[in-house]
Nucleic acid binder design. Sequence first.
DNA 1: TAGTTTTGTTCATCTAAATCACAAAATTTA
DNA 2: TAAATTTTGTGATTTAGATGAACAAAACTA
Lengths: 193, 193
Amino acid sequence: MASLLFDNFNKYSFITADEFVQIEQVLIKRFVKKKKNLLHEGDICRYLYFVEKGALRSYTIDKQGNEHVMQLAIEDYWIADLSSFITQTPGNLAIEVIEDCEVLLLPHPALEQLYDTIPSLGTFFRKLYQRAYVHLQARLHSSQSISAEERYLELMKQHPKISSRIPLIYIASYLGITAESLSRIRKHIHSKA
Amino acid sequence: MASLLFDNFNKYSFITADEFVQIEQVLIKRFVKKKKNLLHEGDICRYLYFVEKGALRSYTIDKQGNEHVMQLAIEDYWIADLSSFITQTPGNLAIEVIEDCEVLLLPHPALEQLYDTIPSLGTFFRKLYQRAYVHLQARLHSSQSISAEERYLELMKQHPKISSRIPLIYIASYLGITAESLSRIRKHIHSKA
DNA sequence: TAGTTTTGTTCATCTAAATCACAAAATTTA
DNA sequence: TAAATTTTGTGATTTAGATGAACAAAACTA
């Protein structure tokens, strides 16, 4: 039972090996190439995506057509348009592959059924939604209270793997600044380090 | 059955008069004066607050001691530190009364029990959490993609009662700008209108 | 291996909003 | 009702970050 996903479940809940076998039966494994979209704006998000390998981003598109990264994900992360997934109505996030990926798809109806047989799975996803909410609130807070440089340092500290692997443009977009600004910030940090 | 709360429930779910009587039995009515806090930073949020009269704000405090308004609420709004309420662990929001209030307190343990007897209440609050999440995401998106003036106009359009009743400082803080900037924005809007 | 696309860096200029400082209203409190 | 306090409005100045225009370095791709 050496599985990234099994360990992921057991970080925030308790899933037995038997239960995990049940979950595995509904999972769909998909290999997706760079630049491909797992989800388009306006789609209903029918799966939660668990990243086994690679890197992805979710983003929104504003009226001027500019993209804004909402989430970055690498191995051991979940990604989805949560609000669309929960309500099963069209959402406004798109999900694109940054680095060739291996993802596990957990379909919405299957998950609903599993909740009945595996109560701790409900706990797990309730906590996951919970963390997503708290994280969103923290991002809004820091976008209002600290500078772009501080936000970048914070991200580096909390997700060092992300900041070293994901192209600067996406990190800049996640932080709500331009690529040029982030480039200057990096320069500034190195100059004083 | 002329009740603001009853109507509020029936906007997003379906609650019968009988069910509402059950809910009413666990509600605690409280009259709170301006400047008083319903919740302090670090408290566990033990209630969902429904506003029957008055105005409130929830806010976070950053390292420099500056307050940032997270939510504004007037009659017919729910307010709480949702993440603290759901997990029943200490949160980082404070809730303060802006205008003398009449609020209804819905205690966490009582709500958990009511979920068993009134399934549509679960639906109602699931949708409420859902809207809170989507709203938070929209705020982050617009704080990154549109100007403070546009955000203000948007707020005025969607919540005209809030923008006319709540003091400018709190609206500015909600929008993530200073009071001076919002004052200038208002001047600018009036000058061209 | 050459050519093309993607990614990162730098510079000069511009702008939205912050900051500081103070005056005028408006509200509270005494 | 006067005094005190809070809230709002203006002006001058500063600043963080955007914009636009190059260009270099990687990274693909043919």
